[in-house]
Write a protein that binds this DNA or RNA. Sequence first.
RNA 1: GGGAGCAUAGCUCAGUUGGUUUAGAGCAUCUGCCUUACAAGCAGAGGGUCCGCGGUUCGAACCCGUGUGCUCCCACCA
Length: 914
Amino acid sequence: MELSKNFIPGETEIKWNEHWKNKGYFNSTPDDRPAYTVVIPPPNVTGVLHMGHTLNETVQDILVRKARMSGFNACWVPGSDHASIATESKVVQMLKDLGIDKNTLTREEFLKYAFEWKEKYGGIIYNQIEKLGCSVDWNRVTFTMDDHYYKAVIKVFVDLYKKGLIYRGARMINWDPAAKTALSDEEVEFKDVTGKLYYLKYYLDSAGVIPPSGEQEGGSFITIATQRPETIMGDTAICVNPNDERYAHLKGQYAFVPLINRRIPIIFDEYVDPTFGTGALKVTPAHDINDYNLGLKHNLEVIDTLNEDGTLSEAAQIYVGVERFAARKKIIAELAEKDHLLKEEEYPSRMGYSQRSGAVVEPRISTQWFLKMKEMAEPALNAVVGGSIKIHPGDKFLATYKYWLENVKDWCISRQLWWGQQIPAWYDDKGNVYVGETLEEALKNVSSESGVVSEDKTHSSQLTTHNLTQDADVLDTWFSSWLWPMEVFNGISQPDNNKEYYYYYPTAVLVTGQDIIFFWVARMIMAGMHYKNEKPFSDVYFTGMVRDKQGRKMSKQLGNSPDLLDLIEKYGADAVRFGIMISSPAGNDLLFDEASLEQGRNFNNKLWNALKLLKMWEGKQSNEQGIVNSEQSVPGVFAPSPSEGSGVRPNFAINWFQNRLNEVRSELENMYAQFKLSEALKTVYSLIWDDFCSWYLEWVKPGFEQPIEADVYKKTVEFFEELMQLLHPFMPFISEEIYHLLSQKEDDLCVKQFGKMEAADKSILAEGELLKNVITALRDARSRNQLKPKETIKLHILSEKKEVYQPIENILAKQVNAESIHYVNDAVADTTVVAIEKDKFYIESEKQIDKTALKETLLKDLEHQKGFLISVQKKLGNERFVANAKPEVIDLERKKQADAEARIQTIEESLATL
RNA sequence: GGGAGCAUAGCUCAGUUGGUUUAGAGCAUCUGCCUUACAAGCAGAGGGUCCGCGGUUCGAACCCGUGUGCUCCCACCA
């Protein structure tokens, strides 16, 4: 079989994706094995996967594949989120481009467009997930507006309403004037901005009757500082601190709102900070949460001067219909003109922006539906604080989580949109509310606007379904996503006798971004605790944010957000997965650089070439399995003395690598347990590249034109297979491909179970290290003496423990290109000497050696050793150290001392021979 | 304003309850190699006052205090 020069990912990926799918490997049904369930954080249905998703999905796939290969019934549920605001605004924009105004459509017409849009673009993310190699169960695809899911959301709403946890009321909420909907507190993002503080004159009504004219002179006034002069028309009071002597004389007085000359009272409240601004505050209950509270306390009128689209309303009297920020400019100009503007100054402040539309959020009083959070929060808090849900990495987020839940406010769950689950509440013309999963059911559950649920038969008998109108609003997207881990198994819609629900829930681990800890993670825990009295997942793994290599957030404007499919096209899915994982320290932000994908591609190539090497050997094996004696041994393969009794002769390289594998497998288990996936990948990478390719394969490599011993070949193939298995969760395609190319097989790697773990033999590993050190040191010496790789040397070893070197001398000779190895008892003249521990290696070559350079190297080493010896001696000379330190620590120090002394002696002797 | 976290090689990070050498890895850099798997490679090397200061300890990158500089989260001061 002819193998291509380099690994070609494209075809391989398609081939294995199809094969895996045909075999149904990733489809899960409950069985006797323990379940390992992961639910994907559902991406927006019409979105595309960005690098953050790529990281997320890769992490999940690694965990799921590892579990699948470790005896678990792995089930990874894919799906997508209807993302009400995001999708609706996209659809509205699409309609606009077609020349259609949403307002001219009926709800049904609009939803028809929206579903068409969803059908058209909803498949993109699924395609990307598949291309990336994600081993999800495609039979379980769930969308948050699927029929059963829709019903589940409605069911939960009705249930919580009946329990008195959901209520409707007029409150100050965050209003998005662009999307024209209410937002939850979490959907508002604050940014620092430099605003301006305007100092305005409010003339006092000393006489109590006559409104001052605009150009009034000499009249007394009170100065108010405000950032938002366009809201003055909504002012209904001026407030000062009762202890502020400057304003004590204003008790019972009134002032006039500039421009419109409305008369407002001056009130006193300790809320006002006398040291801030002028110590006097204008109170606008309709447009500021604090003012709203003050208004409630002092029974002030509420004048809403803004329309829902952010333009000034009729109530403003002036600039009606003008957009709020344009109105601000005009009002400032008019205030200045009419001598109401004393001064303006720069002022740093924070402004709230809508997470979705980017519009500046307007505090607004509005009637909305709310979920009481205190009751929901406590079990969710205990689940994490009590340790039954573990957050990774560490407990970096524990404090944040705890603080949020302890101070959580009620959740505004209604949205003035059409795309989503419509609130199952109906109203009659008397203001009564009927809540139920269906209209018929709702009729049985009438309640007054603010009242409690009652079974009022008189109402229901008089009313028919025609008299009622359903609430036009839909529910917040997160009010559906918080049921995700349950409802993907129909746990809410059909909880009874639901085998799957009991088998798969709670899920194993949730992998998500730390930015949605409140939106989603905390609320899923709430829903889980409330409806199943069981956590939704045992572990939460937070990935960091993906940034570009300069540390900037990825964004369309900057053009630094690469297209996933382009990257897969260019480097291959395995390389993309490798690249993003290798640069991804758990929980920290990741600086994305295409260079790491190149590294992944290069790694593919390395694997491919190792495969090619083995395929070359495959046809060239010696048949005398286990019979060849050491004198006739295949060059390059060391054949040590037969092990007692067995007749099978272990080979040092094989023995060493077997133990390296054992050692690394146990390290990997620890890393997986701690979700240190990036480190795990690094470990596998290094095991393959360094230990296997650079050392092991070179050690067992037969000489030119020589066959490889059949046993050795067989073992090497097994090692390679085992390495592919370790690599598989990270790089599924190439590992599966190589696994099949190595030998004919019936099974597939993606479902091959890991073998038993074996303990590693430390002494063999130590011997391997010694061998590597000797080889490296000798190569370094060669390099310093400018010996060409082809120039051979004669190696003389001066050691008290020949028996250590004899078994590995074949390997050693080959690795340092020595034509012979001799053991000596004295220094060899005119050679380069290398000292390792207590042993000396003399390199004899035809080339003249550079004594100066050699001397320099030895002196440098000597200096280092002496310095080290002093530090050790200092320690051991310290009585208190000897008295207090643990015996094993002292022994270690003594050994260090002895070693250092021996080495110093070796080096000095070597110097003497020069 | 409240809270959390970070600071180790040019860059990105490891460094397990304080003692396995005078601190490791990958990338980048430098040197030598077209060696019959791989130049997307091989071999080798250089590079660090573990942010500053103080303390605890026989012993500190690690624990404590303090200063400096970053990052994030939360919060209604006009």
